[in-house]
Simulated assay, not measured.
Amino acid sequence: MFDTMTFTKLLGGFAGTFLIFLLGKWVAEEVYMVGGHGEHEQAYVIAVPESGEGGDAPVEEGPAFEEVYANADPAAGEGVFRNCRSCHSVEPGENMTGPTLFGVVGRAVDAVEGYAYSGALEEHADVWSPENLNAFLEDPRGFAPGTKMTYSGLRSVEDRANIIAWLDSLDG
């Protein structure tokens, strides 16, 4: 069915197609890039205004944390705690990568014995009030730049309120 000449034609067709794609890539790099190989700067830049002015729709805020926290479900907060379980314990005096969270609501920031805090938290809060915990859990590095906590944060205000209510219920 296939003889040597047919196989050679097929191989030549694939090789020719590959060379055409390589040539197209080279032409595209020359057109859209400045400086050739090694330097990859854009040949043109589209200016984008940084301000939110213009036809942008207003960003709708969700419900206030205080309203959500008043109706929080501690049982749902226990389920949300699975995100925290790898670094934190809820047993008194049991520190892991992060400090124990037993009694954290209302406790002074950096008050757990035997845990080496980074010092970044002291600059932003004195006590772990529900509001401070909410801000910290939303964006830990945004709330306290330099904190040792590497978690990116909980985006849902309901999840934050539920977990804070659950943590508050642990110490009675």
Rank of each mutant, 00 (worst) to 15 (best):
F7G: 12
F7H: 02
F7E: 07
G13D: 04
G16T: 11
F18V: 12
L19I: 02
L19W: 03
L19N: 04
L19K: 00
I20N: 03
I20S: 09
L22V: 13
G24C: 15
K25C: 15
K25T: 15
K25R: 15
W26F: 15
W26R: 14
W26E: 15
A28F: 09
E29H: 08
E29C: 13
E30Y: 00
E30T: 08
E30F: 09
V31Y: 01
Y32T: 12
Y32L: 12
V34M: 07
G35S: 12
G36R: 01
G36D: 03
H37S: 14
G38H: 00
G38N: 02
G38R: 10
H40Y: 11
Q42T: 12
Y44P: 06
Y44A: 15
V45G: 08
V48K: 09
V48A: 11
P49R: 05
P49V: 01
P49Q: 07
P49N: 05
S51H: 07
E53T: 15
G54V: 10
G55A: 10
V59C: 06
E60D: 10
E61M: 13
G62T: 06
A64T: 10
F65L: 10
F65S: 05
E66W: 07
E66Y: 09
V68L: 04
Y69I: 02
Y69D: 04
Y69A: 11
A70M: 02
N71Y: 03
N71P: 02
A72Q: 00
D73I: 03
D73Q: 08
P74F: 01
A76G: 01
G77Y: 02
E78Y: 04
E78M: 09
R82G: 07
R82F: 00
N83G: 12
N83S: 13
C84V: 06
R85Q: 14
H88G: 04
V90G: 08
V90L: 12
V90P: 11
E91C: 13
E91R: 02
E91G: 09
P92H: 02
N95R: 04
N95Y: 01
N95L: 04
G98N: 01
P99G: 01
P99W: 00
F102G: 12
G103N: 00
G103Y: 04
V105T: 11
V105S: 08
V105W: 06
G106T: 09
G106V: 01
G106Q: 05
V109L: 04
D110W: 06
V112E: 05
G114M: 03
G114T: 03
Y115N: 08
A116T: 08
A116G: 05
Y117I: 00
E122Y: 06
E123D: 07
H124I: 04
H124L: 04
D126F: 02
D126H: 02
